[in-house]
Amino acid sequence: MNLSRSARVTLRIAAGLGFAVIYVPLLLVLVNSLNPDRSSGWPPPGLTFHWWADAWHSTGAREALLTSLKAGAGATAIALVLGTLIAFAVQRYRFFGRETISFVVVLPIALPGIITGVALNTAFNTVLEPLGVGLGMFTVIVGHATFCIVVVFNNVIARLRRMPGSYEEAAMDLGAHTFRTFVDITFPLVRSALVAGGLLAFALSFDEIVVTTFTAGPGIQTLPVWIFSNMARPQQAPVVNVVAAVLVLLSVIPIYLAQRMSSDTAASSRI
């Protein structure tokens, strides 16, 4: 499609403004983490790594980081198993309610986080508390898995829709049983989609705060919750800026890798 010069200039300006709204605040967080003053004044009087050292020695931040890693790993593992199984069932089989299942799986990512959090909190208190299971790490992982399943499901089912069935049929014609066909043919073809979905699920869980607030018990504090709870403390403001900057940098890695994996998946499907 050929655009006029004015249209191209307008699109570039609009794109630049959009990127500025997204990334300038993130850049300010990074700069404020190097600000020698405790207040986030602008412009900063200088640059220092003093607060980075303080953040490294902060027991609360390190414990919150470990909690976030545990919750993200657990939610990702659940999402990979359930999301993959549901994707195979919906794509490979025809049964009553198939479209309804697809809708129900995708729905949690569209719901406001506070609605999901309140619903899970009520369900956990109603079902698990009488059984002696209170809010804690287990409920956080289950809460995160409810929306992490969606990204794995979407990645895997998109790959299955582009994957020709002739490869698996040829393997079975040559005598391979179902398990051998899956190991040798199906899994290598969907592996990149699984990795991309897992990375996105982990990033989604790692950054979650609303659902975590409603599903975490006393003493359970993920890194985003720790940042939010310490923002109102003036003495902690520089350390919070450092932790927020680190969180931004760490979040970029799985998202970038997932994007590369998705691109490789799309390219392989065209070969």
Rank of each mutant, 00 (worst) to 15 (best):
N2S: 15
L3S: 12
L3I: 03
L3N: 07
R5V: 10
S6W: 12
R8L: 09
R8H: 14
T10D: 14
T10N: 08
A14E: 03
A14D: 02
A14Q: 03
G16C: 03
G16W: 04
L17P: 11
L28W: 13
V29P: 02
L30R: 06
V31K: 03
N32L: 12
S33M: 00
N35P: 04
P36S: 08
D37P: 00
S40H: 13
G41N: 11
P43K: 02
G46S: 06
L47C: 10
L47Q: 09
T48E: 00
F49P: 03
F49H: 03
H50E: 15
H50W: 08
W51D: 01
W52K: 00
W52L: 00
D54M: 11
A55Q: 01
W56T: 13
S58I: 04
R62G: 09
E63I: 13
E63T: 12
A64P: 08
L65R: 01
L66I: 14
K70W: 13
K70E: 14
G74S: 03
G74K: 09
I78R: 06
A79E: 08
L80P: 01
L80E: 03
G83H: 04
L85Y: 13
I86L: 15
A87H: 02
F88L: 14
F88G: 05
A89V: 05
R94C: 02
F95Y: 12
F95Q: 05
G97A: 05
T100Y: 12
V104G: 14
V105S: 00
V106R: 11
I109N: 05
A110N: 06
L111H: 06
I114G: 10
T116R: 15
A119D: 10
A119Q: 07
N121D: 14
F124I: 05
T126E: 10
P130R: 04
G132D: 07
G132F: 03
G136M: 01
M137S: 10
F138A: 12
F138C: 07
I141T: 07
H144F: 11
A145Y: 03
T146L: 05
T146M: 05
F147S: 01
C148S: 13
C148K: 07
V150F: 02
V151W: 06
N155M: 12
I157S: 06
A158G: 11
L160S: 09
R161A: 15
G165K: 08
S166D: 14
Y167P: 03
E168Y: 04
E168M: 13
E169M: 04
A170H: 10
D173Y: 03
L174N: 08
T178P: 07
F182P: 10
I185G: 00
T186R: 09
T186G: 08
T186W: 04
F187T: 05
S192C: 11
A193I: 07
L199I: 02
L200K: 00
A203W: 00
E208K: 02
I209D: 01
V210M: 15
V211W: 04
T212Q: 13
T212K: 02
A216P: 02
A216Q: 09
P218Q: 13
G219A: 07
I220T: 09
Q221G: 05
T222L: 06
V225S: 08
W226E: 01
I227Y: 04
I227M: 07
S229C: 14
A232T: 13
Q236Y: 08
Q236F: 14
A237G: 07
P238T: 00
V239F: 01
V242L: 00
V248T: 10
V248A: 11
P254V: 03
I255G: 04
L257T: 15
S263F: 13
D264E: 11
T265W: 10
S269K: 04
